[in-house]
């Protein structure tokens, strides 16, 4: 946590304090860092307020939601919203939220697995194997990143309809197992290119085939980019709204993102006409955001490192 440079500048500023400390280099650093911290804290609070507001409201009873002044820390704290929401929303006999959560997890985990495996295989081929159409295939992968996907929305829906995949998870999962999209292939390829090619040569001399090089030599070294791809893919699946909206129709198959819509009526009114339910809405929202925050906290170091190492930064 402790950044050596920051501590250093404080110590260096001390002897200068007797004179005009803010004119010295160290003093100037101290001053500018102080201002930066103030700006960043102000920005940080602005960014955090919506999430804090969700948490706060989710712990309030109806009569605490609209008070003057606003209660940021509910007094007393009520956990009842988190109990109620499991009873309020039902599909048949089943409580809807655990069901939606389970559906979301099935799709997200299967999809993430497919994205990591297939993008790694393709990235391996586009970086480590020498074949003729390689550069062309890579150009196509880049093109799919740049082409607006909206143009395939209607025909994809119709194609999935033709093969009877509507109202199944296949339209949401199968694309992930087929490369997962240009962006992930791009990340994998860029990262794999940064690993020394001598590794492959040495392994080949030892008699290893391509798959062993891929699986036993390169993949263990690719942890940061695997983490980056896995997080992006997981979040993409978990947060996806348009996909489930178009492809899923029976409510027992809904994902959390789609099911949450029952609580998210448009500006026209809906649940917002009944402000006493705000606590419920916020409790569901908090439950949906919680796993994402956990994933991000656990893996953020790997995730950020992965972005840096793909060379996305240097291009």
């Amino acid at each position: 946590m402790a950044q050596p440079t920051a501590g250093h500048s404080v110590a260096a500023a001390r002897p200068a304090l007797a004179t005009r400390w803010h004119r010295t280099t160290a003093g100037r650093t101290l001053l500018s860092h102080g201002i930066l911290h103030l700006v960043l804290i102000a920005a940080g609070i602005t960014f955090a307020i919506p999430i804090l507001w969700v948490l706060s409201t989710s712990l309030k009873r109806a009569d605490q939601v609209f008070t003057h002044p606003i209660q940021w820390i509910p007094n007393p704290v009520h956990l009842s919203n988190y109990v109620d929401i499991f009873q309020v929303l039902k599909i048949g006999q089943q409580s809807a939220i655990p069901l939606f959560f389970q559906n979301s997890m099935v799709i997200s985990v299967t999809g993430t697995l497919g994205t990591v495996l297939s993008s790694a295989l393709v990235g391996f081929s586009l970086s480590r194997l020498r074949w003729r159409a390689r550069d062309f295939v890579f150009a196509v992968a880049l093109a799919t990143m740049m082409l607006p996907g909206i143009v395939t929305l209607v025909p994809r829906f119709l194609l999935f309809r033709d093969i009877g995949w509507l109202d199944t998870y296949l339209p949401l999962i199968v694309p992930d197992w087929l490369g997962g999209g240009g962006f992930f292939i791009f990340l994998m390829r860029q990262f794999l290119r940064s690993l020394p090619y001598e590794l492959d040569e040495a392994a080949r001399i030892d008699g290893a085939g391509s798959f062993r090089i891929f699986w036993q030599v390169l993949m263990p070294l690719s942890q940061p980019v695997i983490a980056t791809v896995a997080i992006f893919a997981f979040l993409g699946n978990y947060m996806d709204f348009m996909g489930p909206l178009i492809y899923l129709s029976s409510s027992e198959k809904f994902t959390l993102a789609l099911g949450l819509r029952w609580f998210a009526p448009s500006a026209a009114g809906g649940a917002f006409g009944y402000p006493n339910e705000w606590g419920w809405v916020m409790a569901v929202t908090a439950l949906m955001v919680a796993p994402v925050i956990v994933v991000f906290f656990v893996a953020q170091r790997q995730f950020v490192r992965g972005i840096q190492l793909t060379g996305l930064a240097g291009r």
């Binding site: 969700v54 979040l235 949450l260 819509r261 998210a264 917002f272 916020m282 949906m288 994402v292």
Partner: peptide, 12 residues
């Protein structure tokens, strides 16, 4: 990393 549905509800 807040799902768009969740952030829509929050901002509403």
């Amino acid at each position: 990393v807040t799902p768009a549905v969740a952030s829509s509800i929050i901002w509403l």
